[in-house]
Design a protein around this nucleic acid. Sequence first.
DNA 1: CGTGCTTTTGAATAGTATCAAGGCCGGTGG
DNA 2: CCACCGGCCTTGATACTATTCAAAAGCACG
Lengths: 242, 242
Amino acid sequence: MNKINSACALCENKNCFIQKLPSQRLSWVDAKKYTVCFPKDQNIFWENAEVNGIHFIKNGKVKVFSSGLNKKDKVVRLAGDGHIIGHRGYGAEQYPVSAATLSESTICFIDNGSLYELFMTNPVFTYTMMMFYSQELRKSEQRAKYNSQMSSKERIIAALLYAKETFGYSQTDLNAQILNVYLTRSEIASIADTTAEEVSRTLTILESEKHILKKGRNIQLLNEKKLLDLIRDYGIYDNADS
Amino acid sequence: MNKINSACALCENKNCFIQKLPSQRLSWVDAKKYTVCFPKDQNIFWENAEVNGIHFIKNGKVKVFSSGLNKKDKVVRLAGDGHIIGHRGYGAEQYPVSAATLSESTICFIDNGSLYELFMTNPVFTYTMMMFYSQELRKSEQRAKYNSQMSSKERIIAALLYAKETFGYSQTDLNAQILNVYLTRSEIASIADTTAEEVSRTLTILESEKHILKKGRNIQLLNEKKLLDLIRDYGIYDNADS
DNA sequence: CGTGCTTTTGAATAGTATCAAGGCCGGTGG
DNA sequence: CCACCGGCCTTGATACTATTCAAAAGCACG
């Protein structure tokens, strides 16, 4: 976990929030930020831990989750390159969620004090960030609504499409639309608000219906459009930006 | 629906967001804002309508809801004096939700342009607002998590406590802790993500357990602490601020 | 080549939604 | 003032979805 900072101005993630700052501000951020590489399956921050700042994914795959009571963890969000994480905690004393890497990931961290200085001096930046929160709120409540109305099968399809939206397809075989992330049945269940057994059953059914192919944790979406049709009425799990 | 503006500086809702502005800015807002009195059971804005600004409840009771598919509407939020409504839509083209009065309500409206000017010139105001969104996001996801883990009975209890948190008890009989809002069984069901029949059944059970008394739509919480205990493990439906 | 974890599949169960019918109440008009 | 009407509430019976429990099979790893 060495500090491996590089210049924000050279970062390939142009959708990253920091890029909303005036360009002359970026080198100031370079001096303040702290970039670290995490191996797979490692926590970036913990639920109930003190919030010291906000994290940005330079590259990698991350799941954000919170611990249930007697039940399993609940995955709240998936995030990939350029996405922000930990913003749920910003303004609170403690993180309401944990974040862990699903693959090796490089994470940039900016502390509360530096952020506050940026917010106080860059109204457009702050405004953009506020609009992002507003959008996140809309998504969160749309999901809540759909979760309460969709069947478990529909929720599982939505979870698959959400994973695709966030991480895209594997680059190793460009023709096969294989989800570019390894999720256990339990993790998919957690996203879809159901059980691992139900996910297993449903994936088998979806395969028999020729909607997907599965080989272990590799899941291939044979016809994304048709899957979308199956849940079209509910809108889409969307993770297009940040 | 006549314009009945009065000075923000004299408003009794000190928790209203506008009060976060420097006091010399309030008269500027007075000139921009538009205050209207709505009768009971009237829409303030409609889902999918164009978003023109943000509303603040000077006094009254409001429900925010979105239409399901084939199912009934889903109540997303209850709001009372000093609370902000319509902020979910801010930054979007269209409202993701509708809002309707549960009682006669006086609503202040500020248009997008004026808000933008305020946001660009008052960093602390913008920051406070952003932190509010952040908090709303946390609440929304906490609720989503709990909804997926609680039983219908627990969700209904949570809905009752949420109504109490938002609107308090009726002032007509100070000793009886009667919820200060008339909600139909369907509306309670919508908050608790269940059916009207289930609410009816559960209220009967809660009454037999001496937790509540009900007389039509008047619901009296006999022992708020005990009700809280029943769902303690899940945290509280909280609507403390704005 | 075990060993332990994940996945699959089956069977039983529990929790809710759905459907249906009757009762209560408040409001309206005679 | 009373009777009627319609909407909301209550209650019961039924159906069904999804969770739980259990057991076997698959797989990855040392």
